[in-house]
Write a protein that binds this DNA or RNA. Structure first.
Length: 746
RNA sequence: GGGCCCGUCGCCUAGCUAGGAUAGGGCGCCGGCCUUCUAAGCCGGAGGUCCCGGGUUCAAAUCCCGGCGGGCCCGCCA
């Protein structure tokens, strides 16, 4: 436990101030500020803990170092042998290294676990405060994909961690059902309904609506891009005509530019831009670039050519975009022909479609019951699909909050009307309402620091047509969490790209006078998942879904089990639990702030979950065989037995010098509290996984080298059982936090 | 253009907040170990310009400055 470290540091402060003739407060400060640090030694043969003393020694001649070191060692041993279990102190190259006896540390730790103090200390951190964790909150327009999965696992794991730390945790899912995306889906779904196209039974609703959404979006986008391309083409043709004239009239020396002229004429002949023309345009583009040097003497020509190049560039970009959507159309249409032709027939003109979608949005926001009912029906059905997926991973929510709910809509109105009353809310000429955070930042340090070193900027909180924006409703939702759901602390697990928006929410709360709430609202930011060789796009219906991930992972497990144990030993419980273990831990391998990049073809190589699960099962096996107790089923009996063991060891004052593996395992076990705390403070649940894996691996090493059941020496055997017990106990806690289901046997 | 994040063996990653001893793990690769608490394990091996260049320091993967490379944000989108 930290108590040993603290004890050592305390004696070190005393010994150092004595030997170096320093004020003990000053030495203490050196430790507190991290100038002096008690760390683990790089090699156990050097001792267990060490502290680098060069900072103090550099004032002295090198010849004196060993003498000083020796004095220090003796003093430390004198002070700390009994008090802090220090066995040995050595001085090497300016380092003071200490060896400690681990048996007593382990005993202390287990005694505190058995008495409940160990966990009480942890749960005192939250102390029953109510905390709200919002996570996942994916737009209900397509199935959850691997990115949403990362969000879910991070959020769920963090919530479980908070619970262990004594917080009352509530998890919420925010349903963005008022935005353009949902309206687009509804628009498409209505067309499908009118054409009497039903969802095939074998497709999950979220997947089905994902297809409808993508198709609708693709069709609208294709039409819009076509129109844009037409316009750009016209523009280019105009420029080319001008170019042709200028070449002939102005340059005089046409032969220099004959190549360009010919190309230009060739393109001009065909007034419609289609695929093969793009190649021609490309050629013109490169030719222009090559010849641009020659235009030094003809500034007008040069200017003209530059705008041609610019226009061609634009065209190429749009064309690239267009092709992506074409590919998506091809893929979607072959997979769902009937649905495609229905949508294709109905969606003729992007302007018409867009205005229909806008109308849906307006009617929904103004509370039109018919439209709201449709929104509700379809989003509900997608959400059912979400729940099914997340259930597979043991992820559930206390509640779903709908953007379209009366409470949030009315709070949204209040937010707008309140913000306009402050000096930072401004009614623009066209009727839109803007929040000027720049001026708020000059009034409030909090807001300036929030955005620093960037400018706070401004943002629109209500459109000129009177509808609100995502951020507006999000501010209302934040208030809802504090005021109606009664949270004292809120964590929003939301992608890092929304950092700015999250700051705007905080700043606005602050302006509105909710200063504590602003400070208690935490953006738990996480980076995207990047898949090798695949660019996900919900709008085009390209994604690696969480459902696929689970299925793929299950196949990995299945294959491996068959290979290792044969077809006949397959147990569905084992398969499903290991699948959850590996899928969840896969999404937790990297810290939230870093991009998680995955190669789907190497999915089977991510086995952190099973590593931990196997160690857990193994620990149970040993306890079962050694004590005749089934650990998961008979926890009280187990604790009683362990208590007895400790008592007998204490009574007979049985000491045991731990082997390397036993020492390392003990030390790792003492890290438990610290890891949980760090993980909580730094918003890094991945540290829990990292720790659990380390613990499992160290346990394996211990297990391999030191028999427990077969050990003849009773005292040694007892100490080893204690080690196994504590490992088992802490692994249980870690599995709880990581959401890894527990197995008794594999 | 402004801002944020990241760069460590073939791949993934820890360590960086608070500088300290031989840069830890995992995957993959090579070689050993199953009559012994179930081998998804253990032991050994190969594999590293810690992106580059300066600076600070007794000491730099870590701090500072300057580059390079990658991701993200700067909408009357969500």
């Amino acid at each position: 436990m930290s108590s040993v470290r603290d004890c050592i540091i305390e004696t070190l402060i005393a010994a150092l101030s004595e030997v170096f003739k320093l004020n003990s407060e000053a030495v203490k400060e050196l430790f507190n500020s991290g100038k002096l640090k008690l760390t683990s030694t790089p090699d156990p043969s050097l001792g267990d803990y060490g502290v680098a003393l060069h900072l103090l020694l550099k004032e002295y001649d090198k010849n004196l170092w060993n003498e000083i070191g020796l004095k220090l060692c003796n003093r430390v041993i004198e002070l700390a042998r009994e008090k802090c279990n220090v066995e040995k102190a050595e001085f090497v190259d300016g380092y003071l290294n200490l060896t400690i006896s681990h048996d007593l540390i382990l005993r202390d730790l287990i005694e505190r676990v058995l008495s409940g103090d160990f966990f009480k200390e942890l749960s005192s951190i939250g102390g029953g405060r109510k905390v709200l964790v919002e996570h996942t909150s994916a737009n209900p327009v397509h199935p959850l994909h691997i990115g949403s999965g990362r969000n879910s696992v991070l959020g769920d794991t963090f919530a479980r961690l908070l619970r262990k730390l004594g917080f009352i945790v509530e998890t919420r899912f925010y349903v963005n059902d008022l935005g353009r995306q949902v309206a687009t889906l509804i628009y498409g779904a209505k067309i499908a309904e009118l054409s009497a196209i039903k969802k095939p039974d074998y497709i999950k609703p979220d997947h089905w609506y994902g297809v409808i959404y993508a198709m609708t979006n693709v069709l609208i986008e294709l039409d819009r891009l076509r129109a844009e391309l037409r316009q750009q083409a016209e523009n280019i043709l105009k420029l080319l005509e001008e170019l042709e004239n200028t070449l002939i009239v102005k340059s005089g020396k046409v032969e220099d530019f004959i190549e360009i002229l010919t190309l230009t004429r060739e393109i001009l002949k065909k007034t419609k831009f289609v695929h093969d023309q793009v190649l021609l345009l490309k050629k013109l583009y490169t030719t222009c670039r090559i010849h641009i040097e020659k235009f030094k003497d003809y500034p007008e020509l040069k200017l003209l050519l530059q705008s041609v190049i610019g226009a061609l560039n634009e065209y190429r970009k749009t064309w690239g975009e267009y092709r992506k959507f074409l590919a998506a159309e091809r893929r979607l249409s072959t997979a769902y022909l009937e649905l495609y032709s229905a949508l294709r027939t109905a969606i003729k003109n992007h302007l018409e479609a867009e205005s229909a979608i806008r109308e849906l949005m307006e009617r929904a926001e103004s509370g039109d019951p018919e439209v709201l009912a449709t929104f509700k029906k379809i989003t509900q059905s997608v959400l059912e699909g979400f729940k099914e997926t997340l259930n597979k991973l043991d992820i559930t929510f206390h509640g779903f909050d709908f953007e379209s709910s009366k409470e949030i809509l009315s709070l949204t109105k209040t937010v707008v009307s309140e913000i306009i009353k402050t000096k930072y809310g401004k009614l623009l000429k066209n009727g839109a309402i803007e929040v000027d955070l720049n001026s708020a930042a000059s009034d409030y340090d909090y807001i300036r620091e929030l955005f620093y070193p960037d400018q706070a900027g401004r943002f629109i909180i209500q459109r000129s047509d009177g509808t609100t924006l995502y951020v507006t409703r999000d501010i209302a939702y934040a208030l809802y969490k504090f005021k109606i759901l009664g949270a004292s602390e809120v964590y929003n697990v939301i992608a890092v790209e929304q950092s700015r928006e999250q700051k705007q929410v905080k700043a606005t709360l602050y302006i509105l006078g909710f200063k504590d709430e602003a400070r208690s609202l935490h953006h738990f930011a996480y980076e995207m998942v990047h898949l090798k060789g695949m660019r996900m796009s919900g709008r085009r219906g390209i994604y690696y879904t969480l459902d696929e991930l689970v299925t793929d992972m299950e196949n990995c497990i299945l294959r491996k089990l068959i290979k290792e144990r044969g077809v006949f030993s397959l147990n569905p419980e084992v398969i499903s639990k290991l699948t959850v273990a590996n899928a969840r831990t896969l999404l937790l391998t990297v810290e939230p702030g870093k991009v998680l990049s995955l190669d789907p073809s190497k999915l089977c190589e991510y086995e952190y979950g099973t590593i931990v699960e196997y160690a857990y099962v193994r620990a149970q096996g040993i306890l079962r065989n050694a004590l005749g107790i089934e650990p998961i089923e008979e926890p009280q009996k187990l604790e009683f037995k362990i208590g007895e063991l400790i008592k007998s060891l204490t009574r007979d004052n049985e000491k045991y010098v731990f082997s390397l593996e036993e020492k390392l395992l003990t030390e790792l076990l003492t890290d438990f509290n610290r890891i949980l705390l760090e993980s909580y403070r730094e918003l890094k649940p991945n540290k829990i996984l990292e720790y659990a894996v380390k613990l499992a691996l160290q346990f394996n090493k211990f297990y391999e080298k030191h028999p427990v059941i077969g050990e003849k020496n009773k005292v040694v055997k007892a100490w080893r059982i204690l080690l196994v017990y504590l490992t088992y106990k802490l692994l249980t806690e870690l599995l709880d936090i990581l959401g890894i289901p527990k197995l008794q046997r594999i």
